[in-house]
């Protein structure tokens, strides 16, 4: 690389560093020297202010550079140490209750600590990263995160429950619609589910198949064996065909199916659940 290109590259790197330093510098709290200079040495009166500009401007620039290169790096040193310290337990390695874990993490921590400190220090020098939180603040943030997580899970569950209730209520109008069976039972499903299971054969068939497709033989008040005793042989056959593998119906239900008046049902029960 020619000397000129090398110089240009260095200038660009310096300019980039200076402009990114502005990220941290843009926060007033990160400019202690400049703040002190402004508060104590820059005259407040217009006349004196303008008269001293030839002196205050270069000193101000020196204050900015001092903040960026010395004062702010010193300010963030303890935060960077704290960041690196998060790799280690506050009370030292806990060999008594986590022997293998502590040993496995030991070499990683030794290698990672200086890297982590360097990265954190550089990041905090260049960018306006909030100061480290105290133990109480961290605990509060953790609780808030858990609460948000639970609220999101509750919301997902609420939406799924609402959708399922709506589908159960409307299934009489369109027995071929798909039911999105939620992952958790809600007592509010009991009444619409009971109504649907008292509906037409096609509706009953759809309800049983939707629940069995999710592997639910029991789901709250729902018992899939009701489908095995359904008055319609097509429903009995479909429930039997959709019955999850690895789950055996009760002996009484199997006995009844083995004596079913419809050949296809009898044949299927012998194939799926041999004696």
């Amino acid at each position: 690389m020619s000397r000129r290109a090398d110089r240009l590259l260095r200038s660009v790197a310096l300019a980039a560093a200076a402009s990114t330093a502005a990220c941290s510098w843009s926060n007033k709290a990160n400019r202690p020297v400049w703040n002190a200079f402004e508060q104590h040495l820059v005259p407040a009166h217009d006349g004196a202010f303008y008269a001293t500009l030839p002196l205050t401007v270069p000193v101000g620039l020196v204050a900015i550079v001092t903040d960026a290169v010395i004062a702010h790096p010193i300010q963030v040193l303890d935060d960077a140490v704290g960041d690196a310290g998060t790799l280690w337990n506050e009370d030292g390695p806990d060999f008594q209750s986590a022997y293998y874990t502590e040993l496995a993490f030991l070499p990683l921590r030794v290698v990672a600590t200086p890297l982590f400190f360097g990265g954190s220090f550089l990041g905090r020098v260049l960018f306006d990263i909030p100061e480290r939180m105290s133990a109480e603040e961290r605990e509060r943030a953790r609780r808030q995160r858990l609460a948000r997580q639970r609220a999101a899970a509750d919301e997902r569950r609420r939406r799924a429950s609402e959708r399922f209730r709506g589908q159960l209520a409307a299934i009489g109008d369109d027995p071929e619609r798909t039911l999105d069976v939620p992952e958790q039972w809600d007592p509010s499903f009991a009444a619409p589910l009971q109504r649907a299971l008292a509906g037409s054969a096609l509706v009953r068939l759809r309800v049983h198949r939707s629940l069995l497709a999710r592997g639910y033989v029991h789901f709250g008040s729902y018992d899939a064996e009701v489908g095995l005793r359904d008055p319609d042989p097509v429903v009995r056959h479909a429930v039997l065909a959709a019955w999850p593998r690895g789950v055996r119906p009760s002996p009484a239900a199997l006995q009844a199916l083995r004596g079913d008046p419809v050949d296809a049902v009898r044949e299927l029960v012998e194939r799926r659940f041999p004696r």
């Binding site: 858990l146 997580q149 639970r150 899970a153 569950r157 992952e183 958790q184 039972w185 999710r214 592997g215 639910y216 033989v217 029991h218 789901f219 709250g220």
Partner: peptide, 13 residues
């Protein structure tokens, strides 16, 4: 689904 929530595909079976 956070652990101990009684949630998940196994619940309700």
């Amino acid at each position: 689904y956070p652990a101990g929530d009684g949630d998940g595909p196994e619940a309700g079976r």
